[in-house]
């Protein structure tokens, strides 16, 4: 398209247009990395879970700085940010998974339905039944498919009879969208399934104890696009029954599945906004840089 180039006043002619384009106005304070609190809407009415002034330390090193965030009922909230930004650490504070790390110390207030989950009388095992977790790598127990799903209900005594347990297992597998694929193989080992099936098995295991919240830490990063689409579809269905918080490295995934998106950067919560806003008009320059693939 270089054969015709008439003059445009104010612009040079010929092949030099690229080099001499006039400077653009309206640059924001670009690459200003100072984070002054969280922008956007971190709080919602009647949240399912809430964190206030959350600080997390690994020994001397602080991993989370004063994060305050609500997780609304029956919503999917996506947490995004570069590696080491603290999003997984924050997710793990929500079901006290960090308790398992001796040098880890958690400060601030973390509530489930308004109850402090770090209160001395809280049993972390019971808490984790209410706030389930699905991990990056599918980690089925080296047991049968049936026993994988039945593990939680047995542990928490949710079924009195074999028939009840059968029912829970079937219901969970149906909700996880796996039942039809495995119904004739329930006593085969869970580790023999494909990656996507294993991850759905882990989701079935998480929902077998009838949790209220499901935390997902990069649930599809080890899966192919088809298995990923199946999990995302499943998340959308589960949303009507559960509250879901998902940490993901895939911005497209955050854009596809979540209603709100939280952007973490160097241990701080930079921006929380409705997902449709974050991916079209993010409020903070750091969010913009991250989702558009710019350095800053």
């Amino acid at each position: 398209m270089t054969d015709v180039l008439p003059t445009m006043p104010g612009l040079p002619t010929g092949e030099t247009v690229v080099d001499d384009t006039p400077p653009m106005t309206e640059t924001r304070e670009e690459f200003d990395v100072e984070i002054k609190g969280t922008v956007g809407a971190p709080f919602v009415d009647d949240p399912k879970m809430s964190a206030r002034h959350s600080n997390v330390f690994y020994g001397e090193k602080q991993a989370i700085f004063d994060v305050s965030l609500d997780i609304g009922r029956n919503e999917i909230i996506a947490m995004i940010g570069p590696s080491g930004c603290g999003k997984s650490t924050f997710l793990r504070t929500l079901n006290r998974m960090n308790d398992t790390i001796p040098i880890c110390r958690v400060e601030g207030e973390h509530c489930l339905d308004g109850e402090d989950i770090y209160a001395p009388d809280q049993d972390p095992v019971l808490l984790r039944a209410r706030v389930g977790m699905v991990f990056q790598k599918p980690n089925p127990f080296p047991k049968s498919i049936y026993d994988n799903v039945a593990y939680g209900p047995r542990l928490h005594g949710l079924a009195r009879t074999r028939a009840e347990l059968d029912e829970i297992v079937e219901k969970s597998l149906v909700r996880a969208g796996l039942f039809n694929e495995v119904k004739d193989d329930l006593h085969k080992p869970g580790t023999g399934l494909s990656g996507g099936q294993q991850q759905r098995l882990c989701i079935a295991r998480a929902i077998a104890v009838d949790p209220e919240v499901i935390l997902m830490d990069e649930p599809t990063s080890a899966l192919d696009p088809i298995a990923t689409a199946t999990i995302e579809e499943l998340m959308d269905e589960l949303k009507s029954r559960y509250t879901i918080a998902v940490v993901t490295h895939s911005m497209q995934q955050a854009a596809r599945v979540s209603q709100r998106t939280a952007y973490f950067h160097m241990g701080k919560l930079v921006e929380v906004n409705p997902t449709n806003q974050v991916f079209t008009t993010p409020q903070h320059q750091l969010t913009e840089n991250y989702i558009t693939g710019r350095f800053g």
Binding site: M8, V17, T21, E30, F31, F295
Partner: peptide
Amino acid sequence: MEIGHHISQRYNQELEEIRTHVLKMGA
């Protein structure tokens, strides 16, 4: 508004080319 500064240089070029072509079409 910034077009450049992507980690991918190729992406910067693609966007810059589009912008240049629009300016040429405008001219």
